[in-house]
Simulated assay, not measured.
Amino acid sequence: MKKYFENYLKNSCSEKDFKSFVELFSIKKNQLILEQQMEENWESIPVSGETPDLSNTLYKIHYEINKQEKGSGKSAVLLTYLTRIAAILLLPLAVAFYFQLQKDNQPGDVLQTISTPLASKTSFVLPDGSKVWLNSGSSIRFPQEFAGDERLVQLTGEAYFDVQKGEKPFRVKTALFTVDVLGTAFNVMAYDHEIPAVTLERGKVTLETKSKKQVALLPGQQAVVDTVAHEITLAQVETKLFSSWINNQLILKDEPLKEVITRLERWYNIEINVVDESLLEKRMTANIEFESIREVMELMEITLSVHYEYDKNLRRLEILKADN
């Protein structure tokens, strides 16, 4: 088996070898051997710097595979095996394409950027020991070392921070505001064209907008930034509704369909179009974890009295009023 695996990685296996390789690892008991050989190969590769934790990405790959629509017959079974093996063996390629560590030479600093595609998440540790969870369609930029008088990171999208206490202030800078903290856990949502918000789970943070409006948050509070009036609104919230995504859960509690759609598009990397705009004010409550998009839409049909049409090839979904 080891020979097949090595030849596969070197791209030197014949069609016959590849077929044997697939047949060997289609057997469930051989999965452990494959994982051990992958680990040996991974440990033999020299690495430098911090490496993102890709467990959430692997979770997502497995999740999508398990939710593939079931075919029938021997060919469908073989396709499932091939897909499972490809998901494991091609993970390094996914890392190369989607979690790019880009180094840019700037005066006194070496900066790197970590980005996540839609329908994927990752977590990693910053140079100061602070932990970051990066949500889908997001990117974060930070120095290789926090050498100045602050620990500054730049965020586009959404991230959850568990900040290590330190003498230097920790700052999260977005396009519209900056969050200052010494040691705490909080969620920052700053996607383009969406209402930005900061939700504090523990500790204390200060938020300051580009127009110099400032507010301090206490645990359990959320600050919503009005990008038109440049005002900040504080409210008491259930913090788990805004941080559950780090545990691969999407919790919706009486949310307008308009906001639900935006979150589902990112969660599943799918385009959703609501044909009748009057449906956008309908509200939805759900706890999504391992469900496929079809299962979510079937739930929506029952609870919201809507109808949906799904084009799997285009990954496009339409929501319509249910027929009376």
Rank of each mutant, 00 (worst) to 15 (best):
S12D: 10
C13F: 11
F21Q: 09
E23N: 10
S26H: 02
S26V: 02
I27W: 00
K28G: 10
Q31G: 01
L32S: 15
L32M: 06
E35K: 11
E39F: 07
S44M: 05
S44W: 03
L54V: 09
T57A: 15
Y59H: 14
S72W: 11
L78K: 07
I88D: 13
Q100G: 02
V110A: 12
L118A: 12
A119Q: 06
S136C: 08
S139Y: 10
Q144I: 15
A147S: 13
G148P: 00
D149W: 00
A159G: 14
D162P: 03
D162V: 06
V163C: 06
G166E: 10
F170V: 02
R171E: 12
A175H: 00
L176C: 05
V181S: 13
L182Q: 12
L182C: 02
F186L: 04
V188D: 02
V188S: 02
Y191L: 01
E194D: 10
V198E: 01
K204R: 14
E208A: 13
K210M: 07
S211G: 04
K213P: 08
L217T: 14
Q221C: 05
D226H: 09
L234G: 11
K240W: 00
K240N: 14
N247R: 09
L257P: 07
I272K: 02
V275S: 12
V275R: 15
E277R: 06
R283F: 06
V296F: 03
M300I: 11
N313G: 07
